[in-house]
């Protein structure tokens, strides 16, 4: 069954069957064969505990990133320069919430409840993408996020549509379709500023200057320092290495920046005829690890706002549950 339907019992079923048959090796062979044949693993299939744990960690972090990512952009909704831009930004922020929900659903098919995931986010035991710990200082940042941050996310996410775990891959297909609008609206926004007054152009350039390097960091540490990469590639959760995707992103962005009339803040960025790729400067990994550790400009603010939003929404959840309990008979939706 490809749905999340039986996820609550999935583990019991798998474990029960395993005990009964007493042959984990046979299950493992079937799992390895399915992955090798590029088949998808579905929720109720047997899977190694480490595969399950890796997926929960990755999908949860991804889901958390989507909902924390609503904050830096929502920051500008009330100050969008036109009704058109405001409607676009609201739709985008709403999409991010939707993406979070698709991903939480996918994580739940692995037997981890949503409340548990949110709890781990709120207590700092699970992470979200470090990129959202940077502030959105001007309106142009909304454009830079759409172009660069969503652009980097798309580069990362397109290969995930072929991830070996079915529910994650399906969530990514939906997300990628929607991300395309996010990136284009950002690009259009930056283009408008870049072609505007001198001041607007400077604002766009400043935003690109600030977001470029953190966007490159979104692909994660260099391959030789990435602790989960090799195993994830073997399991076909990951299809390309961090450095490979980062290079792809740089090569995509250079001509796009030219069309925008903006520059990328890297003096070492140049075409390498031999490699048929761009060379680019060294990333400041100290900054990356610092932000990851919680010392970025907005770590505290983001997580506090998330916790508050959850606490302040409690009365809505309570009211909805109370209403449902009262009307259970009428709707016939009583649940265990």
């Amino acid at each position: 069954m490809a749905t999340a339907a039986a996820h609550r019992t999935a583990r019991t079923d798998a474990d029960g069957a395993r005990t009964a048959v007493g042959d984990t090796a046979e299950y493992e062979r079937a799992f390895d064969a399915a992955v090798a044949a590029d088949e998808r693993i579905e929720p109720r299939d047997w899977m190694p505990d480490a595969y399950r744990a890796t997926l929960v960690r990755q999908i949860a972090q991804h889901a958390h990133s989507e909902i924390i990512g609503m904050q830096p952009e929502a920051n500008w909704i009330t100050r969008a320069p036109s009704l058109r831009r405001k409607a676009i930004l609201m739709a985008k922020v709403q999409d991010e919430a939707g993406h979070g929900l698709y991903l939480y659903s996918a994580a739940e098919t692995l037997g981890t409840g949503r409340d548990e995931l949110l709890d781990k986010l709120h207590s700092g035991r699970q992470k979200y993408s470090s990129i959202f710990n940077y502030p959105t200082l001007t309106w142009a940042d909304v454009g830079a996020i759409g172009w660069l941050v969503d652009g980097a996310a798309i580069t990362n996410q397109v290969p995930l549509c072929r991830c070996s775990y079915g529910p994650y891959a399906r969530a990514m297909v939906r997300i990628c379709k929607e991300e395309s609008f996010h990136q284009r609206q950002g690009y259009e926004l930056l283009l408008a500023l870049s072609k505007g007054t001198e001041e607007q152009h400077a604002m766009a350039q400043d935003a690109v200057n600030r977001w470029w390097w953190p966007s490159l960091m979104m692909f994660g540490p260099p391959d030789d320092e990435s602790q989960h990469s090799a195993q994830s590639m073997e399991w076909k959760i990951k299809r390309h290495s961090n450095d490979e995707l980062r290079q792809r992103f740089v090569d995509i962005c250079v001509p796009q920046a030219e069309s925008l009339g903006l520059t990328l803040p890297d003096p070492d960025l140049r075409w390498n005829e031999e490699r048929q790729q761009h060379d680019f400067g060294t990333i400041d990994w100290t900054e990356f690890w610092e932000v990851l550790k919680g010392n970025g400009p907005c770590n505290e603010q983001r997580i506090t706002q998330r916790r508050n939003a959850h606490a302040e929404g409690a009365w809505v959840r309570d009211a909805a549950a109370a209403y449902a309990a009262k009307h259970t008979g009428e709707t016939g939706a009583k649940q265990a």
Binding site: A2, T3, A4, A5, A91, Q94, D95, G98, L101, Y102, S105, E108, R114, R170, A171, R174, E178, R317, A320, A321, Y323, A324, H327, T328, T331, G332, A333
Partner: peptide, 25 residues
């Protein structure tokens, strides 16, 4: 066709949430 899953307290809210989550376009 199966689109995905969601949490909701009752059927009515499940429908509304499903509309917002799976049919935004």
């Amino acid at each position: 066709t199966h689109a995905g899953s969601l949490h909701a307290p009752d059927a009515e809210l499940a429908l509304r949430n499903a509309r917002d989550l799976y049919t935004r376009r």
